[in-house]
Design a protein around this nucleic acid. Structure first.
Length: 164
DNA sequence: CGCTTTTGACCCGCGC
DNA sequence: GCGCGGGTCAAAAGCG
């Protein structure tokens, strides 16, 4: 973790965990045919250019958990290694210059890949908490480099690292 | 000193 | 059966 926060107003201790509110008003669906799977929720949120990342304050908000649980508690046959639990993918499309948006959790990057259909790499993150099976996938938009698509996978079974 | 990042290799599923 | 695309691991380095 180096300079993840260039010069943005990163909510460090000024964030309001209970005052979070996602701007899901701008629901613009693009040509994400590949994304429009049966179990993929694509959420596009457009932020005002001169706004900070307050809207991304997931920090331990119970509402966030409920919401995420509702959509993330569906079925996804991930017959992989550990547990084929129900995992849901949620894609957030956000307008931002940086792809590392602080959502209140600590992420550890475990991989980077170059997708063939895009000149931009795709980053893979995982929650630093042991018991947290949540994965995160960050990718830039192919046509709109100003947009970042963050795909969350799984449910947090713990609150913010600093919360509680 | 601990933890994250980094990068290449490996693995897996699916299509041809 | 092999190849491609995508996803994950793992060893070493970097940085706070």
């Amino acid at each position: 973790m180096a300079e993840n926060y260039p010069n943005t107003n990163m909510p460090g201790s000024n964030m309001d965990p209970y005052n979070y509110q996602m701007n899901f008003e701008h629901l613009d669906f693009f040509d994400f045919t590949d994304w429009k799977k049966d179990d993929l929720e694509l959420i596009v949120s457009g932020y005002p250019e001169s706004q900070n990342y307050d809207a991304f304050n997931f920090g331990g908000s119970s509402s966030y958990h409920e919401d995420l649980n509702g959509i993330a508690a569906s079925g996804d046959g991930r017959s992989g290694r550990e547990n084929k639990e129900t995992t849901k993918k949620v894609a957030f499309k956000t307008r931002s210059e940086i792809e590392i948006l602080d959502d209140g959790f600590k992420w550890r990057k475990y991989g980077k890949k170059m997708v063939k259909n895009s000149p931009n790499p795709r980053n893979y993150y995982k929650c630093s908490v042991e018991e947290c099976p949540v994965k995160k996938r960050v990718e830039r938009d192919k046509d709109d480099p100003r947009y970042v698509v963050t795909t969350y996978e799984g449910i947090h079974n713990h609150h913010s690292p600093s919360q509680h």
